[in-house]
Simulated assay, not measured.
Amino acid sequence: MTAPALLSATGLCVAFPGRRGRAPARAVDGVDLDVGRGEIVALVGESGCGKSTLARALLGLVAPTAGRVLFDGREPGRGTRALKEYRRRVQLVLQDPSGSLNPRHTVYEAVAEGLRIHGLRGDERAAVAEALARAGLRPPERFLLRHPHELSGGQRQRVVIAGALVLGPELIVADEPVASLDASVRGEILALLLRLRGELGLSALVVTHDLGLAWNVADRVAVMYLGRIVESGPVEEVLTAPRHPYTRALLSVLPESGAEPVVLSGEPPDTSRIPAGCRFHVRCPVLASGAAERAGVARACRGTELPVLPGGPDSRVACHWAAAGT
């Protein structure tokens, strides 16, 4: 029997009011997503697909317009006290450590801030030092009185991670955690996430546009396009045998893929005017090449909407052409 997910979203939707009478922008348009205990899930997609909005909705930073989020089997309350407790257990790590850290605060103050906000008592200095050490800043005493400008980019990101760890969270939501770092440092931060999972049993949802990062760090991957998950499953299955044309296009640009790069035509449609049928069909190379017509699914691609994929651990794909067994 499968253990219940630590974090679970069902039918989650987030819409923003349209300007000047336009239809609402459906940034997240029906998402089921699970993150298990001790599991790292990568949420992958190009800029504007809705992945950061989904992450913020999971954290309670954006109010969903439909659907629900469960953490540890319960729906987080909407009251101030309930949200405060939830956000202690689920911490956000942003992509830009320079923007996340107050330049006037020392490393000690930056990491201790969460303890003070949540009113957690005890030996504050010992807790800060332990969090810095776990984040790879050793010996921590060397860093306590430094300011952000005295640190490298990788060290600043470790301080941000330490600020999350000091609260003892069960899950970290990392939004593009290495996007602003040099290539030489990226591997160190990814190795740190894996080590924290091993040492603390920490779960993580890693939001990224980089499928190469997902390959290196994740257990499962969920590929998002225009507000929905279009393919998900164990990372080895999805990235070695992708079934959705969008996933294939994302993979094709990785140098190690060895495939001919697939250049998608145009830009993703406006989220206030999501096309009928498969939402990817207006850019789909399979449809453009005639392969969908030969498989007998071209009409369905253009006019039949696909269901929301369930959020479990099995491989899933929202694609008429893939479902036809081609």
Rank of each mutant, 00 (worst) to 15 (best):
L196V: 02
V111W: 07
A183I: 15
R156H: 09
L192M: 00
A135L: 02
V159H: 03
G198W: 09
A204E: 00
G201K: 12
R142W: 11
D182W: 06
E109I: 07
R125P: 10
A127P: 07
V128L: 10
R116D: 14
G119M: 05
R156M: 11
L167N: 06
P148W: 11
S184C: 11
V185A: 08
P177G: 02
D175I: 05
Q157M: 07
A127T: 09
Q155M: 14
L165G: 08
A131L: 00
G114L: 05
A126V: 13
R156A: 10
E170H: 13
L144V: 08
R138E: 13
L196C: 03
E150T: 13
L200N: 03
A164L: 06
D182T: 04
I172E: 06
S152Q: 08
V173Y: 09
V160L: 01
A131F: 01
H209I: 09
L151T: 10
E113K: 14
S184W: 11
Q155G: 09
A127N: 08
A204S: 04
L194T: 01
L132Q: 10
A204R: 00
A191I: 00
S203I: 03
V107R: 14
V207R: 06
E130P: 06
A162Y: 01
A112D: 02
A131S: 02
V206R: 01
L137M: 11
Q155T: 10
S152C: 07
A129L: 09
G119H: 08
E188G: 14
R116F: 12
G119E: 02
D182E: 07
P169W: 04
R134G: 02
H118S: 10
Y108H: 15
D175M: 05
D210A: 01
L190C: 06
L144P: 04
R142M: 12
L211R: 06
I161Y: 00
V178I: 14
L137W: 07
G198M: 11
P169V: 04
L115E: 02
Q157F: 03
G212E: 02
